[in-house]
Design a protein around this nucleic acid. Structure first.
Length: 876
RNA sequence: GCGGUCAUGGCGGAAUUGGUAGACGCGCUAGCUUGAGGUGCUAGUUCUUUAACCGGAGUGGAGGUUCGAGUCCUCUUGACCGCACCA
């Protein structure tokens, strides 16, 4: 009955329809079972899904289906991160409206995802570009504004000259726009900011509690937040050297212990004191201008050598009125960090040493490594930056670094000048507020009205949503909202005079900062979230996505959830309890005879013994096989999921994506690999057919006793069950696959050993049990094939709707164990012995073995180490 | 420069967390089957010696701890990732 090949093309849509009709994956918020929320990062509707999506969603689906089988009420939704630049670029290139382009892409991609057979609750689908979604985002923006979490300020911002918009700091990578790749410029603009820095401390500290996050991501976020503890110190200025009434400069340091090693003060080019000094010194003004010029491209700053200019101003050392330090304007000091001014201690800071050496400022060692004679300890071109004991530092001498830091802080906090302490302990963060204004059309409008008389006012709640106008043009660069003839003209909600709408839209990362909350009740119209639903479902138990969002999306979402809590829209701080970052899908690259990239679909690969040769399918031209790289359109090394699903079926694609590599590592897509997966699909189908003829009917009562053959079959099945369970829980899908292969190999062997004629009842029962377990194990990974097999095994239920079987752990415990016997650490023999044999018995049996005696070569036995049920080591 | 991860057959990778290294898959070799050439089955596949058994070596390299190290420690080489004037 199952002699023919399994036909995925027929079976897969059939089962998808059946799941759909039975609403198997529709999740209800009032379901009393314990909740489990599994979520994969939602896609941008770029047009078609790619293999990275297949891998990501296959992993999530395994977890979702497994947890469902374990009796959880699983929430596994899908939506679309639908605002963004590509829609506008398409509009410009093809004269199609961004909305039309986006919704057409969504329709295509929804169909592709459905063909994968994912256990998604499509009733909860959301698209962030839909007013029914972004109206709530506007509402939250206004709530955040009332709660003091939104700021409007003029600031130096990152300007992407290609995309013609502002970018957040997180979106600038190596000085370039994260999307356009263009060198980012610095511009002064008035922008809306989310005050993520209000939560800097909490965002930092709470990382320690995220135990189910990859260490790597936590470290990256910590570095990005950049918390440092230090001291700000007000240095008095020598009045005779000061241009126009400035009396002091405040610096920030994390090394107050090295204050007696100070050689200079350095201030940023845009520091007020620098500006004042520049006003009376043309050469200095030129230098400042030069610093600012190089300051437009972040990439250049990093490569620039350290340059400074002596302002002539002298600062007075806080512990010695007779000691003055030169004040330099320096190109490496950033106005944005700390106070925009530092003191330089060349002996103990790399940068300061480079600067001091360039300008002949010398250095004094004030920290000496413990156990080293200070007299001979000098610094020339490499500073000593570690902790140690203080020297050359008056009252600090002999103290440790920590003691000295504390002592300096204590003394300077106690000392006052002009009624304020000279020193203040201060915690500084690298994290900046999140600038969310974007000068683009295809985004969520910022619900603000600007009135010349009343200022920037919130749009009244009753007027939400502020909808994007449909009639826009993209024929000229810039923001279509800004040049729309009518859209921005409104009456001031306060005085009624003519006023203007804010024409900036929100960063699309705002859209993705709360979609996981909206999924918990996407139907509610009166507020962004239903508190019962959001508090019941959050945090997401398992979130799966790419590492590229380690700081962007994953940090913004953590902030946004806190802000939602503050404004009453959620009851938790952390959105994602468990995070998994999966690796990429990579593929060989190919270059044709003309040196142009060639797609895998156009290439024929032939094996010549161990060597592989590639040629063009069209004309046999020589193709050069290049390095394995991330699938990208530019290198043409992509494989279209539609083609794979059309040729092999979704199950084969899913199985291969899960089988080859550990999920956190990159997986190499190969034709041989897919074919191997496809072979297993057919093999499993044939094996199921054989098992169906050998197995006892569904519902047969277990026999009273099992013979050795039956027991062996049962052990193999339950061992696989235990192992797969353990590995799915830890998302080690490649190991799950190996365990399933092992079980099917074992069952094939068992079938070979038992003929139909001599099949006893206990063996038939064991085959029934093992077959059911095998298919249940396969079902989260290859759900369609599993249903087909489940049916072939005589079930009238769905395997997708079947509870996970509890393994019988006692079954896999053997009566006898096989212990390797080593002599001096080298394995010489094996010993099969009763599991509960005493160490004495094991030792005697081991020593009696002939290969052991041979290896001892007559030497006396000095010691025998017996690790029960593990190993014996004879030392002789 | 700083921080992190990793290094195991021809390839992807396993290894009960200090206890038989190479599970499982791919590829390859031989034979059978099918049949004409993307099927199935059987056997083999770390290297080396051997007809075979028995041996010897072996987890990037050099040391160390231990009865025992792919796993722990020190040094070193290489690859990848993140951050990069953050005071």
């Amino acid at each position: 009955m199952t002699s023919e090949r399994y036909n995925a093309r027929e079976a897969e849509p059939k089962w998808q329809t059946i799941w759909d009709e039975r609403e198997l994956f529709r999740t209800r918020n009032d379901d009393p079972r314990p909740k489990y929320y599994v979520l994969e990062m939602f896609p941008y509707p770029s047009g078609r899904i790619h293999m990275g999506h297949v891998r990501n969603y296959a992993m999530g689906d395994v977890v979702a289906r497994y947890k469902r089988a374990r009796g959880f009420n699983v929430l596994h939704p899908m939506g679309w991160d639908a605002f963004g630049m590509p829609a506008e670029n398409a509009a410009m290139a093809n004269k199609v409206h961004p909305a039309q382009w986006t919704y057409a892409n969504i329709a295509t991609m929804r169909g592709q995802l459905k063909s994968m057979g994912l256990s998604l609750d499509w009733h909860r689908e959301v698209a962030t570009c839909d007013p029914s979604y972004y109206r709530h985002q506007q509402r939250m923006f206004l709530d955040f504004l009332s709660a003091g979490l939104v700021d409007r300020k003029t600031a130096k911002v990152n300007w992407d000259p290609v995309d013609q918009t502002v970018l957040a700091n997180e979106q600038v990578i190596d000085g370039r726009g994260w999307r356009s790749g263009a060198l980012v410029e610095q511009r002064e603009l008035t922008q809306w900011f989310f005050k993520i820095t209000d939560y800097a401390q909490d965002l930092n500290d709470a990382l320690d509690g995220l135990e189910r996050w990859p260490e790597k991501v936590r470290v990256m976020q910590k570095n990005w937040i950049g918390r440092s503890e230090g001291l700000s110190v007000r240095f008095a200025l020598d009045a005779a050297t000061t241009p126009s009434g400035e009396t002091e400069v405040e610096i920030y340091t994390t090394r107050p212990d090295t204050l007696f090693g100070a050689k200079f003060i350095a201030i940023a080019a845009d520091h007020p004191l620098a500006r004042a000094a520049g006003a009376r010194d043309q050469a200095l003004a030129d230098f400042i201008a030069e610093c600012k010029r190089t300051g437009t491209a972040a990439e250049l700053i990093e490569k620039a050598e350290k340059k400074g200019y002596d302002t002539g101003i002298r600062a007075v050392h806080p512990f010695d009125p007779s000691w003055t330090l030169p004040v330099y304007v320096a190109n490496f000091v950033l106005m944005e960090y700390g106070t925009g001014a530092i003191f330089g201690c060349p002996a103990h800071d790399e940068r300061d040493l480079e600067f001091a050496n360039a300008y002949g400022l010398g250095n004094t060692v004030v920290v000496c490594p413990a156990g080293v004679d200070p007299a001979g300890f000098v610094v020339t071109d490499k500073p000593y930056v570690e902790d140690g004991l203080l020297v050359n530092s008056r009252f600090l001498d002999g103290m440790t670094t920590a003691q000295a830091k504390d002592e300096v802080a204590r003394r300077l906090e106690a000392e006052t000048r002009g009624n304020a302490p000279v020193g203040r302990r201060k915690v500084n963060f690298r994290l900046r507020d999140w600038g969310i204004s974007r000068q683009r059309y295809w985004g969520c409008p910022i619900p603000i009205i600007h009135c010349d008389a009343c200022g920037a006012l919130p749009v009244p709640l009753a007027d939400l949503p502020v909808k994007l106008p449909d009639d826009v043009t993209f024929d000229v660069p810039g923001n279509p909202l800004d040049r729309h003839p009518t859209w921005k003209h409104v009456a001031c909600p306060q005085c009624g005079a003519k006023a203007r709408r804010e024409t900036d839209t929100m960063d699309t990362f705002v859209d993705s900062s709360w979609y996981f909350a909206r999924f918990t009740d996407p139907w509610i119209e009166t507020s962004p979230t239903d508190r019962g639903a959001v508090d019941g479902w959050l945090p997401v138990d398992q979130y799966i996505g790419g590492i590229e969002h380690a700081i962007l999306h994953l940090l913004y979402s953590r902030f946004f959830t806190r802000a939602m809590r503050k404004t009453g829209h959620a009851g938790v701080d952390e959105p994602f309890a468990g995070l998994f970052t999966q690796g990429m899908v990579v593929h060989e690259t190919y270059k044709g005879p003309d040196g142009a990239w060639v797609s895998p679909a156009e290439v024929r690969i032939e094996s010549d013994g161990a060597a592989r040769k590639a040629s063009l399918l069209s004309n046999g031209g020589t193709v050069e096989i290049g390095p394995i790289e991330k699938m990208s359109k530019s290198k043409k090394n992509t494989v279209d999921p539609d083609d794979i699903i059309g040729t092999y079926g979704a199950d084969t694609a899913r199985w291969f994506m899960l089988s080859d590599s550990p999920p956190e590592r990159d997986v190499i897509w190969t034709e041989e690999g897919v074919q191997g997966a496809a072979r297993f699909v057919q093999r499993l189908w044939r094996l199921t057919g054989e098992l169906a003829t050998l197995a006892a009917p569904v519902g047969t009562a277990a026999p009273a006793a099992f013979g050795p053959e039956a027991l062996a079959i049962r052990k193999a099945a339950h061992r696989a069950l235990i192992r797969v369970e353990e590995d799915v829980e830890r998302l080690r899908f490649n190991r799950c696959v190996a365990h399933i292969y092992e079980l099917s190999n074992a069952l094939s062997a068992a079938i070979g050993a038992v003929t139909t004629e001599t099949r006893p009842a206990d063996v038939a029962w064991a085959f029934r049990e093992a077959a059911d377990i095998l298919i249940a194990l396969v079902s989260p990974m290859m759900p369609h094939l599993a249903e087909e097999c489940w049916q072939a095994l005589g079930h009238d239920t769905l395997v997708a709707d079947t509870r996970w079987q509890e393994p019988d752990r006692a079954l896999v415990v053997e009566d006898t164990v096989l212990m390797p016997v080593q002599v001096n650490g080298k394995k010489r023999a094996e010993l099969t012995i009763a599991r509960d044999a005493s160490n004495d018995v094991v030792e005697a049996a081991a020593l009696a073995l002939e290969p052991v005696q041979r290896a001892l070569e007559g030497r006396p036995v000095r010691k025998v180490v017996v690790v029960p049920q593990r190993i014996v080591n004879v030392v002789g």
